[in-house]
Design a protein around this nucleic acid. Structure first.
Lengths: 120, 120
DNA sequence: GCGGATGTATAAATCGTTCATATAAATCGG
DNA sequence: CCGATTTATATGAACGATTTATACATCCGC
């Protein structure tokens, strides 16, 4: 599992089926790279191609059930790992982390916002 | 600049000259990979090889002045980017972030501690 | 309906990597 | 001390994910 494939699967889980060009831009790779990545993931049964009836050029990429299960399992494993670490913190440290969550969300929002509208 | 080379340069800046095997372990790549990476960085003038007088097998890898300057510039660029984002937060959000720093440091310490002594 | 634009696929080349192996220097057991 | 083993690095072949160049099919505006 490469970084790009993990991220692509997560994107598909978050946003639903997407066309290949769209995925390539979101993941920051070229369209041919995404084409072959989709083929590999398709052969692994994590993903399936659906034609778009409205535009016969595009192939929509969607998570299969196995793909969804995989993404969810991975996410849960990561969450568990975090929980395991946070459980070892002092109570006041956990409170401080929780109190900082809105600021972190705001930071993430500002960052992604700037990525979407570069230097306007 | 690949992820591994950036990380290796940062390691050299933090810890001083290191032997190739050591760097390979720290960066999670094989020794041959680190050997060629060092050669590339040497050709770029970021790094130099020094023989170890105490053990003629080892080649100590050290940052050149240019390498140090590069690492520092990169680090400053990253800090600046963070500052730019944090400046857009509300005052209470910045305070909350600052208050969470000890908890984050504790988390990082717990994590690196577990990596060093795996499942004992 | 034709011409340019758009979405995807394919082929060749590149790059960072691993695996296998070679060489040289250090260390250890007798 | 001396041969055997271990340790540090280097080298070469193969691999896998990627990019660039290009081809092909379909859409869309005029």
């Amino acid at each position: 599992m490469t970084l790009t494939s993990s991220s692509t699967l997560a994107t598909l889980d978050r946003t639903g089926p997407r066309r290949i060009t769209d995925l390539a831009v979101r993941e920051g790779v070229t369209q041919p790279a995404m084409t072959v990545l989709v083929r590999v993931m398709e052969e692994s049964g994590l993903v399936e191609r659906r034609g778009d009836p409205a535009d016969k050029r595009v192939t929509l990429v969607a998570l299969t059930e196995a793909g969804t299960a995989y993404v969810r399992a991975r996410r849960r494993a990561g969450v568990d790992e975090f929980v395991r670490l946070i459980d070892q913190l002092e109570d006041d440290e956990v409170e401080a982390l929780a109190a900082a969550l809105p600021a972190l969300q705001h930071l993430a929002a500002l960052d992604s916002q700037e990525r979407e509208e570069p230097k306007q």
